[in-house]
Design a protein around this nucleic acid. Sequence first.
DNA 1: TTGTATGCGTTATCAC
DNA 2: GTGATAACGCATACAA
Lengths: 335, 335
Amino acid sequence: MQITLKDIARMAGVAESTVSRALNDKKGVGENTRKKIIEIAEKYDYRPNKLARGLVSKKTNMIALILSDMENQSYIDIVKNIEIEAEKNNYQIILCNTNGNIEKEKSYLNLLESNQVDGAIFIGGGLVGQYLLNASFKESNKIVLINRLSDEGFFPTVLTDYGDGIYRAVKHLLNNGYKKIALISGDLNILTEEEKFNGYKRAITKYNINFEKKLLVETNGKRIEGYNAFIKLIEGGIIPDSFIVTQELLTIGLVEAVKTGGYFIPEDFAIIGSGDNILTSAVDPPLTVIAEPVEELAELAFNDLIKILNNDKENFSIRVLTPQLIIRESSKRNK
Amino acid sequence: MQITLKDIARMAGVAESTVSRALNDKKGVGENTRKKIIEIAEKYDYRPNKLARGLVSKKTNMIALILSDMENQSYIDIVKNIEIEAEKNNYQIILCNTNGNIEKEKSYLNLLESNQVDGAIFIGGGLVGQYLLNASFKESNKIVLINRLSDEGFFPTVLTDYGDGIYRAVKHLLNNGYKKIALISGDLNILTEEEKFNGYKRAITKYNINFEKKLLVETNGKRIEGYNAFIKLIEGGIIPDSFIVTQELLTIGLVEAVKTGGYFIPEDFAIIGSGDNILTSAVDPPLTVIAEPVEELAELAFNDLIKILNNDKENFSIRVLTPQLIIRESSKRNK
DNA sequence: TTGTATGCGTTATCAC
DNA sequence: GTGATAACGCATACAA
């Protein structure tokens, strides 16, 4: 059985409140009593019950990380980086995976509303609906969004400008003489994917190229779909000279298909992938990628959360980070 | 402000205890009062405070996942699978990353001892020392180990027989005519890595080959070290005909080095990697791998934890799962 | 400086 | 079937 404040108080011959003060470094405790109390606490390896403490102090030092997709390597990287920040600030992380399921999302909001966590960071997913806003009103907005939008400008938000990333990728390819650029995307109902598509269209149009719908392949983001996307295009007689792929797994699948087909990268097809992480780093040849600033996203989001946890109300900003275009072999013009 | 039991009791004109019973589906509440109470609860979107509930019931429905290494893709996969199991069983997961740091491990044990979580699963890492045992005595062993050993047979444990995996990999290579097999390993102070090395040595000796120390390259597991391992061997004049690599990132680094050197797989060097996941799946040519049974590890461990949480004492087993050797292109004999 | 009393939101044990 | 009341472990306002 775990030792409690009361036990220590009894052993030290003082009141519980004195023990509490002594152990929490509050002033108003005599040097001797403090010493005695600390000694006993250490001897019996006292650990304050966090539930009891949370119940009275309304603070648990835990935050929920609500992930829309655990298969997304960038999101995993964001989690890792938030974990680092949290550790520094003495916060614990609860990992929640919704798989894009709104019902699960709601149920995870319960963590917030039942006082189990102090705040939450939502990573990815669709537009934040009314149910989230309701929760927010109750809990006075201890929520931060990463790569996700709310229809009210209510939560501090950190976004990646995916559209701009794709836009620059297109521009890079055009500059290198590629003309027929295919876009392999995930589900366009997902906000971020739609945004990527818009960036693609914007760039295409800007440079006076007709947007060809056939050059867009929408997938469910799984690896095999990247593979199939290539086959579908080729078999359909649509032969692009380059690909931009909006997700890691799709990229890997596509590269596999290209190689299986006996084609060379970038000689036959240039490829620009998404995400600069262990996944894409394994691709051969070295892959040009649109790289999400995962560390920065994590850091900004966590700091925003800390701020609203400390009731800095002035902080309801939306920040937009620009992804980096990292140019490697897979998009070099060799012809 | 969140509504509480007391509020509902007042509104319904009954006692708190009645509300509690009604809302927890306990018998001994009149049908009418129950209806009225539930109605009010729903109307005001009542959420029981989990802290208060946990304080009295000694149950939080949360478990800690204590990871020794977030860079290890297999471990991430185990986390994903435990998350799935936890979700099914209405448990929440707290993610803790120790980076192999014992101090952090101790501090995470605090979660257990301060009643924040019901149990914990340790994934990977060194031998479990005395401090963990101490904790276990207090908390009556709500701990399960994955790929980790305790010097007392105290915690339910699920292990991967890495040694056997490597053993069979060596055998496979020998059967295919390879004779000079290099082993690229991680830090041999880590239990699992040592075990892999032992499997290697066992196989080598068994088939009457002299163990050459120079064919063993010990690394820190980072990708670049896999790259360097190849260079080191070649430049050192040690030319193996095949490689067994004990970690994903090392594998990717090694493959990169081989290709950069202008060599072909498996024509010049056969390669057997570790881990059958998105990481190694990106390698070209398709990689023969020693595959850890991540789903099974996760499932068994979680079920064991559930059992000891329910005080099934008879369950202190150590189960050993055998990894699968998945044979693909990278280890085929083509010469 | 120290002790007393109260409350945090629930559940559980008694009575009635 | 229902209602007081204690208890969980801690923090804090107030008294002494």
